[in-house]
Nucleic acid binder design. Structure first.
Length: 363
DNA sequence: AATTCGGGGAC
DNA sequence: GTCCCAGAATT
């Protein structure tokens, strides 16, 4: 065995990495009782679906959606053949709706071009719409045991603490560092089990607020030894919140309401909404009525309700102002469609609007 | 390299 | 309130 100084660093990390990997696998086999429907799943369709749904989404939140999806679309051909509106409706409320659009694109691609068979290499998986480095590694390792290390929020947190790495996880250089480390300590031949284990470990033990006393690696963890759990992982960017004022006129006539699909490059792309007047600041109802009448030429209406709510998204704080009005007679309004309540309930709306559909538009 | 895409839960 | 979540696409 050579003991040259140049190799010592690599050897040291390598030994520690192997140490951690072995301890993690042992923990996984003896103490990890976390159960999820897709765990141990070998059907690439189900693995793919679960991974797309769980991007930036907690397991507890995605669970119900996964079950609904599998029931509605049991295989890739059914999903590919399903009407877009129906797929959106099942996705409704889960957020990040580009995932849903990409899901349909890839389902169609796999069903029609690939005979319903998902790719079996990392590069080909990566080429699928909505599949990035994490998801390609997850599908590859879970379905085919490909030696690809996953790198998600859990893995960043675990590795930064165990090895005391302070490179920012949201910088290009930091990502390269963590990616190389993750790949280096991945036990070849056990990639699937290891990837699952490290994410379970991050979700249950090495949480943002960690349970160090329950950790099998406590004494060997840099963060624990140096008391750095709370500063690791390091993030350098702060998200800036923008404020928006979305004023919605819920224009009703009988059992119909004016609805449109959001198609602009903005939040909730693909979902539906009521008659929108966006303003730069909060407005009184009277002011909104002026804009409403001017913009849409509607005058013979009665206001039956008027209320405000607020919703916080990752990058936006949205103030809603709703005005529910009733018309005596239907009138054509450009870009909006008169839609029966029963049909409205088949369409996907943003969360804040969905609640209105559920509670205020008849039974 | 920086921004933008939801919604919910933990703290 | 702030932070984070089985991230990816676009600019």
């Amino acid at each position: 065995m050579k003991e040259e100084s140049g190799e010592k660093e690599v050897l040291k990390t390598g030994k520690r990495g192997a140490d951690f990997a072995n301890a993690l696998l042992h923990w996984n086999r003896t103490e990890n009782h976390r159960q999820m429907p897709w765990k141990g799943e070998k059907d690439p369709y189900k693995i793919w679906l679960s991974e797309i749904m769980l991007q930036q989404t907690r397991v507890e939140q995605g669970l119900k959606y996964y079950q609904n999806f599998i029931e509605a679309f049991p295989n890739v051909h059914v999903l590919a053949a399903a009407p877009e509106a129906k797929v959106f409706k099942v996705w409704e409320g889960l957020g990040y709706y580009s995932r849903c659009r990409n899901l349909m694109t890839t389902a169609s691609h796999v069903s029609n071009e690939l005979n319903g068979i998902f790719p079996k290499t990392y590069e080909e998986l990566l080429s699928l719409k909505g599949v990035g480095s994490y998801t390609a590694a997850a599908i590859g390792s879970f379905a085919y045991n490909l030696p690809c290390a996953v790198l998600d929020g859990n893995v960043f947190r675990v590795l930064s603490r165990i090895f005391g790495i302070e490179a920012p996880i949201d910088s290009t250089q930091g990502k390269k560092t963590f990616s190389a480390l993750a790949q280096a300590i991945l036990p070849k031949g056990q990639a699937g089990e290891y990837n699952q284990a490290i994410m379970d470990f991050g979700a249950m033990i090495c949480k943002p607020s960690p349970l160090c006393d329950a950790c099998f690696f406590q004494q060997k963890c840099t963060a624990y030894v140096e008391g750095k759990q709370s500063i690791l992982p390091v993030k350098e960017k702060k998200t800036v919140l923008k404020k928006r004022w979305l004023n919605y006129f819920i224009v009703q006539c009988g059992d119909e309401v004016l609805v449109q699909q959001r198609l602009e490059k903005d939040i909730w792309h693909g979902l539906h909404q009521f008659v929108l007047i966006e303003t730069k600041k909060t407005c009184k109802t009277k002011q909104l009525e002026v804009l409403f009448q001017k913009q849409y030429g509607l005058e013979n209406y009665t206001i039956v309700d008027d209320w405000k709510t607020q919703q916080h998204l990752s990058h936006q704080s949205v103030c809603f102002h709703f005005v529910h009005v009733k018309l005596k007679r239907k009138k054509k309004v450009e870009n909006y469609t008169w839609t029966k309540f029963s049909d409205v309930k088949e369409l996907a709306f943003p969360r804040a609007l969905q609640q209105i559909v559920a509670s205020r538009l008849g039974v």
